[in-house]
Each structure stands twice: as structure tokens, then as C-alpha cells.
């Protein structure tokens, strides 16, 4: 899929652990792992909003289009 998830980069930038982010946005660490690994088929707007709020960033910082 040409859409890549740069959640790892943002987590390092914000010095935040995956577990902490999962707790903040209210999803399981397993689901966050699926999202980080790029195995996810889709992302809900509510999840994206929660991630952006928790990491204080824009959707474009997390999602990138690489043709």
C-alpha cells in the first residue's frame, strides 16, 4: 500500500512509549502495533483525531503517501 504510517517517528520525537499512547487514545497495544506495522486496512477519524491530540501533531505527520 502506498500509504505509510510514521507513528514510530512521531513517538520517538515526542519521547512517548507505544503503551502510553495506546492508553491515551483508548486502543489496545495490539491494535496500535497493527497500525504501526502498516497491516491496518483503515483508520477511523476518531482514532486519527485521538492520535493527533495525544502527539500534538497533524495527520500528515503520521500518514504519508509514497507512490
Amino acid at each position: 500500500m502506498p500509504i505509510t504510517v510514521n507513528l514510530d517517528v512521531m513517538l520517538i520525537k515526542r519521547k512517548m512509549k507505544s503503551k502510553e499512547l495506546a492508553q491515551k487514545i483508548g486502543i489496545t497495544t495490539a491494535n496500535l502495533s497493527i497500525l504501526k506495522s502498516g497491516k491496518a486496512k483503515a483508520i477511523r477519524f476518531s482514532t486519527l483525531e485521538a492520535i493527533c491530540e495525544a502527539l500534538e501533531c497533524q495527520p500528515s505527520d503520521i500518514l504519508e503517501y509514497k507512490p
Binding site: 486502543i27 491494535n31 496500535l32 497493527i34 497500525l35 497491516k39 491496518a40 486496512k41 483503515a42 483508520i43 477511523r44 482514532t47
Partner: peptide
């Protein structure tokens, strides 16, 4: 179902 399960 698979798509739904992989929607985060």
C-alpha cells in the same frame, strides 16, 4: 470481517 477487524 477481516477489513473491519483491521480498521483501527
Amino acid at each position: 470481517k477481516e477489513e473491519n477487524d483491521l480498521t483501527i
